[in-house]
Write a protein that binds this DNA or RNA. Structure first.
Lengths: 218, 218
DNA sequence: ATTATCTTTTTGGTATGCCAAAAATAATAA
DNA sequence: TTATTATTTTTGGCATACCAAAAAGATAAT
């Protein structure tokens, strides 16, 4: 298998298994990678042979230690590049993902560590996602989804779980940028939509959007 | 054809045809890309169909206008990255080529132009090779090979035509870095080796090495 | 001019990564 | 439980990028 193919599978499996605990279904992988299910079955069989995943037929896949290590490495590269593009090269929050998607496959430890050093070895990327260190360690955090936030409490926007351009543009429009402080005003009984105060403006967030926004209690 | 494959062929043809004037033989392409001659024949046929080259059987290839444009674009990306790696990220002159070889395939105009802008839109890279601008224009120069230099004259080291690590390390050892001023002391009648003064030290350069060093009269 | 050599092309074959459609296997609902 | 639906797997096929060995074509040497 080509390194790029391996990397795309492992990264996807890691991201879909949330913290590498759950087993991932073939269909979700196929959807995420825009591949035919038949292709995914084949790919997973090969990754199993390469001992990057444990793949049980008609059940699902999970990463082995080796697969996890590789997945965390590619995620590190991706998030370092995103951060570098945004902070050092002036790219917008909504632009960096697509470019990082290509740059992440350039595998040069010295390069990534150099970029990380310039950035001050950050632990979170511009989307609020944690950046694994060189050994694959991830900073554990007490982040929750905005949809789980409590009324009257104060939070800080820490990240998103949907990286689509439309969503990121939507957030920017409402000033919900990373680091922004927010206060939960009300939660509608009717549809669970959230009314919050952000930079002195009242913003109404749908439950669907709130489910994609990561916040931290402050 | 995969974009990367196309790019590697066109870049190689451009580099081997020196200023895009000469016709390039299949064997030279095969050697440069470490490919079987059979593979090259096949590749060139496809590039001809795609109208990137004019390929005449058992004769050779040359780039079309479209091929030239693409070749210059990939060369621009390569040289901008080399310069950025060396000047902004602190990589050594001998390290940048290999990394740029991978980064060059990330095709994002905004990214390359941003890097170029940070570098002050340079016209030459750390190897002394000219960097095409966004439209593919290359700065023409009055550079000559060190092997063609005249006795007693003063020159400035502008680049190299051999990018191997061994050669670059050899140059660094003799302080023959880009921009260094040199004075030709003598040229040995016996073997044409050149004795020059560089940073107050006398250095002896073999004809083979002198043939790979580009200088400009000052 | 004829051999010898080198280069290019053709031929037949491999591995990878993909898909569509059919078959097998779960999962869910009635 | 049985039928329906959804998921997964198998099968057969295609395109790309490669190679080794044989055949054809060009170049050089005697």
């Amino acid at each position: 298998m080509r390194p790029e193919t391996i990397e795309n599978y492992l990264k996807t499996i890691y991201n879909l298994s949330s913290n590498n605990t759950a087993v991932v279904s073939n269909q979700k992988i196929a959807d995420r990678l825009s591949l035919n299910p038949a292709t995914v079955t084949e790919g997973l069989r090969k990754l199993h042979e390469l001992k990057y995943i444990v793949y049980e037929k008609s059940y699902g896949s999970r990463l082995t230690a080796a697969g996890s290590k590789l997945a965390l490495d590619i995620i590190r590269r991706h998030r370092i590049w995103e951060t570098y593009l945004a902070k050092e090269l002036g790219f917008g929050w909504d632009e960096v993902h697509a470019i990082a998607e290509e740059l992440e496959h350039v595998n040069n430890v010295k390069l990534i560590n150099k970029l990380a050093a310039i950035l001050g070895n950050p632990i979170y990327d511009p989307h609020g996602d944690p950046i694994p260190d060189e050994r694959g360690k991830i900073q554990k955090s007490n982040f929750i989804k905005l949809s789980e936030a409590k009324i009257k409490w104060n939070y800080k926007v820490m990240g998103v779980t949907d990286h689509s351009t439309t969503f990121l543009k939507y957030l920017e429009k409402h000033n919900l940028i990373i680091g922004a402080g927010i206060n939960i005003k009300t939660i509608e009984d009717f549809d669970n939509s959230i009314v919050l105060i952000c930079q002195k403006k009242e913003v109404n967030i749908s439950p669907k959007a709130a489910d994609c926004i990561i916040v931290q209690s402050i």
